Simulated scan of single mutants.
Amino acid sequence: MPQVWSPEEIDKILAVIDTANPVGRRNYAIFLLLARTGLRISDVLGLKFSNINWKENCISLSQQKTGNALSLPLSKELGMAIISYLQDGRPQSSSAFIFLSHNAPFQPLGEHNNFNPEFHKYLRRAGSEKG
């Protein structure tokens, strides 16, 4: 069953992510996308460069679970988090996927990379009862 966090809980979770390192920049961008767009984790991890229209400030994708087309605004906050990861965190790769593992080989995060442990680590650090 989906869980809902208050704006204060979301701020606490985001605050415990260490953005001084590449993995932290990646995870911050992922969690920010989850929190601000309501996308499922599978859709965030499946984002490709082609899903982001920087000129129109939007994210367009076909949802993995439903197949429904979706277009969402790309706020300045989201754009800056993604750019920070791309410039100072993402491993060098020709992959079309935005979010990659940080262990060689640098592969897209997805069905073979369980992201739940990362998510629950930040929930615990933030003192969330839902983690």
Score class of each variant (00 low, 15 high):
73 P>R: 05
37 T>D: 12
87 Q>C: 03
68 N>Y: 00
88 D>L: 01
8 E>A: 15
127 G>W: 01
81 A>K: 11
76 K>L: 14
24 G>A: 01
10 I>S: 08
58 C>A: 00
12 K>P: 01
24 G>E: 03
97 F>Y: 15
51 N>F: 03
106 F>N: 09
45 L>A: 04
130 K>N: 06
51 N>C: 14
3 Q>F: 13
17 I>L: 06
128 S>R: 07
90 R>L: 08
12 K>A: 12
2 P>S: 06
102 H>T: 08
68 N>K: 15
115 F>A: 05
129 E>T: 08
61 L>Q: 12
84 S>L: 09
44 V>F: 11
80 M>C: 05
117 P>D: 10
124 R>W: 00
49 F>H: 14
108 P>H: 07
57 N>M: 15
48 K>P: 02
97 F>N: 15
67 G>K: 05
95 S>E: 12
98 I>E: 12
112 H>F: 04
64 Q>M: 03
117 P>V: 10
38 G>E: 07
7 P>L: 08
106 F>D: 05
79 G>P: 12
126 A>N: 05
97 F>I: 05
106 F>R: 11
86 L>A: 10
102 H>D: 06
6 S>D: 12
107 Q>M: 14
110 G>Y: 04
42 S>R: 12
59 I>W: 07
53 N>Q: 11
104 A>T: 14
68 N>E: 15
48 K>W: 03
81 A>C: 07
6 S>N: 06
89 G>V: 05
10 I>H: 04
56 E>K: 15
97 F>S: 14
95 S>C: 13
13 I>L: 15
28 Y>H: 14
106 F>E: 10
95 S>G: 06
50 S>I: 05
79 G>S: 04
8 E>Q: 15
